[in-house]
């Protein structure tokens, strides 16, 4: 089949972008969407033109690198599917496909379809972990975790950090991403001791990154390739509410690891 692509081209972060029309010829229905772009790119390269820059790595829907909005829908809008898993049989000869980068202030475009999602890393950095040093753990079975809790935590932990939730949200909100990590860790007994400041710190960081606010529409959960549920946002809201009611938590997150503190002391 032959397709007409309207692809967002943008030289770099500071340039103005535009939609360029590119013909995709002899596309086969067995190709994945990204393989279709590969084929288009090979033609562009051989013709001496600039290929379309887009992000992808594992191409099996787990790394979370691929990130374009297809006809306005992040990952193409099929249930539980990332762009790399989307196949061309969903399109027909003569279709026009609009391909754009994620749209959100917190995800500035770097080039063409590639955006900067480092804000997510900084949110994790703000509290998306359990403070346990290597080697200090006791036996894995010493804390039982009910199957239900473990399964729910896993539902949340399935998030691949692709950012489709932000991209689909008309407010550019990252609540689903943050809620997934907060819920994963706050649900488990191992994560409980740091529950309050985790949710406070992560929400604060999310706000600082310039993500929008949630208006409970649900587009995020709809496009989420791992089908992370909206209930996790409710869980985060609840944890946040309880955390701020308690006021300032007495134990602030340790900003210096114990070992590093030790090294401040004279040794000899």
């Amino acid at each position: 089949m032959n397709l007409t692509l309207k692809v967002w081209r943008q030289k770099d972060a500071s340039s103005q972008g535009y939609l360029e029309t590119i013909e995709a010829k002899d596309i086969n229905q067995y190709m994945s969407f990204l393989e279709m772009l590969d084929v288009v790119n090979e033609h562009l390269i051989v013709e001496g033109k600039e290929p379309i820059s887009f992000e992808s790595d594992c191409r099996e829907g787990i790394c979370g690198a691929c990130s374009c909005a297809i006809n306005g829908k992040p990952h193409g809008g099929h249930k539980g599917t990332t762009t790399c898993q989307l196949h061309m049989r969903y399109f027909k000869d003569g279709d026009t496909i609009v391909i754009e980068p994620w749209r959100s202030r917190a995800f500035p475009v770097i080039k063409d379809l590639i955006v900067d999602r480092s804000a997510f890393d900084r949110i994790i950095q703000a509290g998306g972990y359990i403070s346990v040093n290597t080697g200090g753990a006791h036996d894995a079975n010493s804390i039982p975790v009910s199957k239900e809790i473990a399964e729910t935590a896993m539902d949340a932990a399935a998030c691949i950090g692709c950012g489709a939730c932000v991209a689909s949200c008309k407010n550019g909100s990252a609540m689903l991403f943050v809620a997934a990590k907060v819920s994963h860790l706050n649900l488990l007994p191992q994560g409980k001791p740091e529950k309050d400041y985790r949710v406070k710190n992560m929400v604060t960081q999310m706000d600082e990154e310039g993500f929008g606010n949630c208006t409970n529409i649900g587009s995020c959960a709809e496009v989420c390739p791992k089908e992370v549920d909206l209930k996790f946002i409710a869980k985060m809201n609840r944890d946040y509410g309880l955390a701020i009611l308690k006021g300032e938590s007495r134990h602030k997150p340790d900003t210096i690891s114990i070992q590093a503190e030790l090294s401040e002391l004279p040794i000899d």
Binding site: A137, D139, I143, A150, L188, Q190
Partner: peptide, 10 residues
């Protein structure tokens, strides 16, 4: 042990 302590939902 380490992974469970980190919150890996096995």
């Amino acid at each position: 042990d380490q992974c469970v302590a980190q919150g890996v939902p096995f």
